[in-house]
Every structure is written in structure tokens, then in C-alpha cells.
């Protein structure tokens, strides 16, 4: 339950940023609202390291910019496909093997795959990823391997 204070702090920071009123009344409302939200979340038993991966934040600081750059590159690739006079797509469903150990790592990897245009994760069974790729030759696995390793590193030792 060490994540509950984290959740409360994040929610209250969000409250402060969105309201930006510092009168005692509004601060009181914020405290009450965040407490109720944390209470409900704890009753639902969803407050843990999986829903609140605070231990990943520092390593994510290097992962996210790299991911944004990957997204940009694959955006340009898909844009070229779309803007060509004749659409030449060769979509197929490819299978990857993910090397993450935790479900959270797999979740991050799957969402990273989906977030880069040109590849969409359609299903996960164990560590077997089912990925729909818009052009199959370009997805030869090298980029996904890089992403796989990066997510595995992001996931780190802590579970």
C-alpha cells in the first residue's frame, strides 16, 4: 500500500494544476476529493505498482524521447505510403516474442508497438505478440528488437 500516498500526491498535483486556486476552500475540496478517489481506488484494489508505475519514471525519461523519435520516423513512412499515387500496402499479421518478464513491461511494449503507426498489437498470449503490420517487409523485426530490448531495460529489476 505504499502506492496510495503516491496516487494521492499525483491526484492532488493534478487538482492544483487544473484549478490553480489556492484559497483554503478550494484546497479543502481538493483534499476531500483526492481522499475519496484514493479510497475508492483502494476498495477496487487497483492501487499497486502495476497501475502506478512510479518506479519506472526515471528510466522512462530516456525511453519516451526515443519512442517519440521512433513514432516520428514511422509516421513519415506511413505518410509516404498513403500519399503515393497507388496505394502499395502489404499488410500481414506477424508474431514477435517479447522478452519482458512482467505484465507491465509487456503492456508498455504492446502500447509502444501500437503507438508507432504501421504496427498494431492485436493480441498477446503469454510472451507471444500478434502484430498487424501495414507493410510486412519493412517490419523485419530489427526495430522491434531494439524496442523490445529498450522496454526490457526500462522495466528493469524492480517488479
Amino acid at each position: 500500500m505504499k502506492h496510495a500516498p503516491w496516487l494521492w500526491a499525483i491526484l492532488f498535483a493534478l487538482w492544483l494544476v487544473l484549478s490553480w486556486h489556492f484559497t483554503p476552500l478550494f484546497l479543502f475540496f481538493g483534499v476531500v476529493t483526492c481522499s475519496v478517489a484514493v479510497f475508492v481506488a483502494m476498495r477496487m484494489a487497483i492501487v499497486d505498482g502495476e497501475s502506478l508505475p512510479v518506479h519506472l519514471v526515471w528510466r522512462a525519461a530516456t525511453y519516451v524521447p526515443w519512442l517519440v523519435w521512433e513514432i516520428f520516423k514511422s509516421n513519415v513512412r506511413v505518410a509516404r505510403i498513403i500519399l503515393s499515387p497507388r496505394i502499395r500496402v502489404d499488410p500481414s499479421i506477424v508474431h514477435f516474442r517479447a522478452s519482458q518478464r512482467t505484465d507491465l513491461g509487456r503492456f508498455i511494449y504492446a502500447n509502444s508497438i501500437t503507438l508507432t503507426p504501421g504496427t498494431v498489437t492485436t493480441g498477446i498470449v503469454g510472451d507471444d505478440f500478434e502484430v498487424h503490420a501495414i507493410v510486412q517487409e519493412e517490419i523485419d523485426g530489427t526495430e522491434e528488437n531494439v524496442m523490445n530490448r529498450r522496454v526490457a531495460r526500462l522495466e528493469g529489476e524492480v517488479a
Partner: peptide, 16 residues
């Protein structure tokens, strides 16, 4: 041509 390939285009809109 189909919903799966269109998802990639929709992803473009959402991301970049």
C-alpha cells in the same frame, strides 16, 4: 483498403 490498415492511418492522426 480495410479496417486494420486504416488503424495505422488513424494512429498517425493520434500521434503526430
Amino acid at each position: 483498403p480495410d479496417v486494420f490498415t486504416r488503424m495505422h492511418a488513424a494512429g498517425m492522426v493520434d500521434t503526430m
